Simulated scan of single mutants.
Amino acid sequence: MKYLKIEDNRGFFLRKEEDGSQTWIEIDQICKEDLFYLLNKAISEDFEMDEFNEDILSNKAHLIIYKNLYEKFSDLLTNKTRFKDESESLYKVAIEKYSTPE
């Protein structure tokens, strides 16, 4: 599913609304909760985004924000398996220590 897109020379992200629906919002309106939502989706689901292209983003604020998000999410998606493995191994000891035997 696509979560970041470029349309009409502007960048957009997919925001989850309180009622569970999703809406495309201009990228300069992104907030902390939106970033957490996108990170969760990038880690747990198929995460697609339009490739960054500075020639089609005429709004300078959108260009800067979209470029940074695209680079960070690209890096995360490239290292997704390694990230999940490291996270699981980090908490493995605690999970084993506090899990009840079956």
Rank of each mutant, 00 (worst) to 15 (best):
I64Y: 10
S87K: 04
D85M: 11
P101G: 10
K16Y: 04
S99N: 12
T81R: 07
I65W: 09
E54A: 06
A94F: 12
E45W: 08
Y37I: 02
L76T: 13
L38W: 12
F36V: 08
L14M: 04
I64L: 14
L69T: 14
P101A: 09
T81M: 10
N79C: 13
K84Y: 01
T78I: 15
E33A: 05
D75T: 15
N9F: 12
S99L: 00
F47A: 11
N9E: 03
L35P: 04
T23I: 02
N53L: 02
L14I: 04
P101C: 10
Y3G: 03
Y98N: 05
M49Q: 11
R82V: 15
E7F: 01
F12L: 03
L90R: 14
K97R: 09
Y66H: 07
V93Y: 13
L90M: 14
N79T: 13
L14D: 01
I64Q: 13
T81W: 03
L63N: 02
E86I: 02
Y91N: 13
F73L: 08
M1E: 09
E26I: 04
Q29H: 05
L14K: 05
E88C: 03
E88Y: 10
L57N: 03
N59H: 12
N53R: 05
Q29L: 08
E33W: 00
K97W: 06
I6P: 03
K2A: 13
N79F: 14
E7C: 05
Q22D: 06
I6T: 04
D75I: 13
E54L: 03
D46P: 13
K80Q: 15
E102D: 08
S99D: 10
S87L: 15
Y3A: 05
P101N: 14
P101H: 13
S44I: 00
E96R: 09
E86V: 06
K60H: 06
F52Y: 15
S44F: 14
L77D: 11
L4H: 04
F47M: 12
D85E: 15
F13R: 00
L90P: 02
I30M: 09
E96N: 14
Y91D: 08
I25T: 08
D19S: 07
T81Q: 10
E71H: 05
E7Q: 04
E18S: 09
T100Y: 06
K2M: 14
R10C: 02
I65T: 03
D8F: 05
Y98L: 06
I27E: 04
E54N: 04
N79S: 10
N53E: 01
Y37C: 06
Y70G: 10
Y98R: 06
N40I: 11
R15N: 09
N59S: 05
E7I: 02
F52A: 10
I95P: 00
K84L: 13
E48L: 07
I56R: 02
T23E: 06
Q22M: 01
E48R: 15
S89Y: 09
I27K: 02
Y66C: 10
F13K: 03
F47D: 05
E51A: 13
T100W: 02
Y3Q: 01
N79W: 15
F83I: 14
S74E: 12
I65K: 07
D50F: 14
